[in-house]
């Protein structure tokens, strides 16, 4: 076949819709999970603002606390809270899939890998709460 090398067919790729992730729950869940990162960043920004207010002095810190009581900030923090919980749960549940540990020729059950993560989560949260609430 003469010339066949020159006439390469164009690669055919269907263009996926920009909103492909809206169609099915697992896809939407995936995008929501990925979007949790935005709320993680928001938390860091808020923490940095708090540290900044703290080092400036009591008056600035009071002003910062006032800002935290703003309904818009509260609403944003409620949404953020759900997203970071979603991140935590999906992250811990993913751990057994990321770490395929084998013991005695068998794969260690997922619960034994995810479980300790949840236990650590509760323990660490309790420790942080204790540090901040001891009065």
């Amino acid at each position: 076949m003469p010339g066949s090398a020159q006439v390469l067919p164009k690669m055919y790729r269907t263009r996926m819709s920009t909103y492909w992730w809206l169609g099915r729950w697992p896809y939407l869940k995936f995008i929501l999970r990925e979007l949790s990162s935005v709320f993680v960043a928001w938390f860091v920004i808020m923490t940095l603002l708090q540290i900044d207010a703290l080092r400036r002095g009591p008056a600035d810190y009071m002003e910062f606390q006032e800002w935290l009581r703003n309904p818009v900030v509260i609403a944003l923090n409620i949404i953020s809270f759900f997203f970071v919980i979603f991140h935590a749960v999906t992250w811990f549940n993913l751990a057994p899939k990321a770490m395929a540990i084998r013991a005695g020729g068998k794969r260690v059950p997922a619960v034994l890998i995810a479980g300790p993560n949840y236990i650590a989560w509760v323990a660490i949260s309790a420790a942080v709460a204790w540090l901040l609430l001891r009065g």
Partner: peptide, 17 residues
């Protein structure tokens, strides 16, 4: 982020304000 942010966000962002 999974271990530390939820409790801190809950306390500083919601429970205290």
């Amino acid at each position: 982020a999974a271990m530390l942010i939820p409790i801190q966000l809950f306390l500083f962002g919601l429970a205290f304000p």
